[in-house]
Design a protein around this nucleic acid. Structure first.
Lengths: 359, 359
DNA sequence: GTGAAAGCGCTAACAA
DNA sequence: TTGTTAGCGCTTTCAC
């Protein structure tokens, strides 16, 4: 049933090493006859090399470990599509693990390591101090396995592929400025100044400020109390974000003048803010423009459809896998940072400067 | 650096076979001393068995192929968690592929087969006639690889693990009946009678009818025109569902009497219907109870929070993987069908029978 | 009680 | 031009 090189050797009446040499393409030095015969028989028998034997022999597996922890599960599929795209032309296959707990994460990593994966694509949990980063870093070094970190900045000396939150925010802010907005607020995470833990919020604020500064406009930052880090029930996280957005309006109304546009830290916050606005009789976008972040499926169907940006999960997966292949080949890949994709919809418009109907 | 049984044997001054016997738990016949020493050293050195060597020895790859096509990506992570849970105590690892196109699906399958996966977990695309099922079935038979199909009924003679849509609908309907509802409508897919293509809608209708019949109540089915099968832009799918739900109210209003409760084919349809109700001045749940399906994250935070059911993706993943392991061991696993989990929230309540404010 | 040996399939240095 | 051999790490039978 199972056809190995031995089978071929016996059928062709040559030795296994001859078969091996010929099949691996180094068969120039053999008789054309022999070569022909061996190749023919291999094809006829439908020979498939045993990747396991190869893996044992070479101490490499043609396997890529993919450790996914806190990536928004909505993007996991897209991310993996990108990974597949990058390895489509190679013999590599992805060994995928979703880790939910810190211990789970290490177990998944161990599994990858004793599978002798040739490289590791790592997404550490965002904002989790619970994970034993020291251990992870140590293991990586110990096993000398090439790795690329995605959606995070937790592993020093590991090449990274990330969302460029700074550039994204700059893009959004410039977009609003170009529309004519002059009072643009940022509704963000309460701990956005904690660069290491909430790097995404921090980066967003940077980009926001940069764009405003370039236009000679003052930043207006409203920080919301978000305590999702303490809670593990996903629906609560979402409820918390919308609540924060809803309550954000109070902060905006307390300002000397209401901003004409608000860039949010997350779509869900924009949803909450949108509802609060409606209850206060503020029209979106006529009275106030709302800019989300995340590109959630829902953003397309709320009322009005939310202008937002979507993480380029496919691109990130593809770039990360491509860079990992480079690293496996011994070339140190550069870090990559990819801006989100802008999805312009109906929650943003030119400001109604004169109190007249917009447009 | 790398610690094998040889390393342990040398350190413990015994033979590799002794180490092997002891580590595999069959070390009763050895000196307690020896056993202790070997186990201690193995632990100290952090010995991890080489799965590749084992795989070669046993002629199995210890790899499980997972082909995911149309599973709601929201559930993919949960599903894979379940798979991991089932194989946690084994040496198996999941080779995961997300296929977006029919050709992509076959390529992924080929990759699994080339890798000699010991088993295949397959999710074929729902409602896709485009996929070459014949080819898939043929390949499975050809390679004699055990398989389990999940979230679908497309592969004859392959054991299945599915959501029990019939039982779920029966559960929901009975729940509404128990609350006192007598006019309960089903807002569903226009082609719900196409059992093979839209089996989920078909099954739901069955359960709905069964529960009503048992209570001596008449079914009221409103079928919506859904054309998502023709469209590949995900946000459109969602827009289409909400639109269908929104328009569904017209069908309900055209009835001799408005139902007091509506079971929907999907959360998104319930969202659309909810909005339509509000616009018509109908209060949920005071005037009409709404029951979703899907347990989307959003369902928890809409207003009012939607009573719905959530696919037991974790359970399905776990059961499917467990059954696949059975199949690999040569035991034919039974089909499994698991009802969704009921999430009771605020969109359902006892009917306001007398036109008085509910409750 | 313990160890030697063979072999899973593949590879490569070395003999012939 | 082709074959022999040793070995990757693990398992298991059989001999001591």
């Amino acid at each position: 049933m199972k056809v190995t090189r031995k089978t071929i050797a016996e059928t062709a009446k040559v030795s296994v090493s001859t078969v091996g040499m010929i099949l691996s393409g180094q068969g120039e030095r053999y008789h054309a006859d022999t070569r022909q015969r061996v190749l023919q028989i291999a094809a006829d028998l439908g020979y498939q090399p045993s990747i396991n034997a190869r893996a044992l022999r070479f101490q490499r597996s043609l396997l890529l470990g993919v450790l996914i922890n806190a990536v928004n599960t909505h993007f996991a599929a897209e991310f993996l599509h990108g990974v597949q795209d990058a390895i489509a032309a190679t013999d590599y296959s992805p060994l995928v693990f979703f880790a939910k707990s810190p211990e789970g994460f290490e177990q998944c990593m161990d599994r990858c390591l004793n599978r002798h994966v040739d490289g590791l694509l790592i997404n550490c949990v965002a904002g989790a101090t619970e994970i034993n980063l020291e251990g992870v870093i140590h293991k990586l070094a110990d096993h000398a396995v090439p790795a690329v970190e995605v959606f995070g900045h937790f592993l020093p000396a590991v090449p990274k592929v990330n969302v460029d939150n700074r550039q994204t925010a700059e893009l959004c802010t410039r977009h609003l400025i170009a529309q004519g907005h002059r009072r643009i607020a940022l509704l963000t995470h309460g701990r956005y100044e904690n660069q290491s833990l909430h790097f995404d919020a921090w980066e967003q604020a940077q980009g926001y400020r940069d764009a405003l500064q370039a236009a000679g406009l003052p930043p207006i930052i409203i920080a919301c109390d978000l305590n999702y880090a303490r809670v593990h029930e996903p629906s609560f996280v979402e409820a918390d974000f919308t609540r924060a957005g809803f309550e954000g309006l109070a902060g905006l109304l307390a300002l000397p003048q209401l901003p004409t546009a608000v860039l949010c830290y997350a779509d869900l916050m924009a949803f909450g803010l949108n509802r609060a606005c409606r209850l206060k009789g503020l029209e979106v976008p006529a009275d106030i423009s709302l800019f989300g972040k995340g590109g959630t499926a829902l953003s397309a169907i709320v009322n009005p459809p939310l202008t937002t940006t979507r993480p380029p999960a496919f691109e990130i997966g593809r770039t990360a896998a491509a860079n990992l292949l480079l690293a496996i080949r011994g070339q140190a890949p550069a870090d990559a940072c990819i801006a989100e994709t802008l999805l312009e919809r109906q929650s943003t418009a030119a400001p109604n400067i004169h109190g007249l109907p917009a447009k």
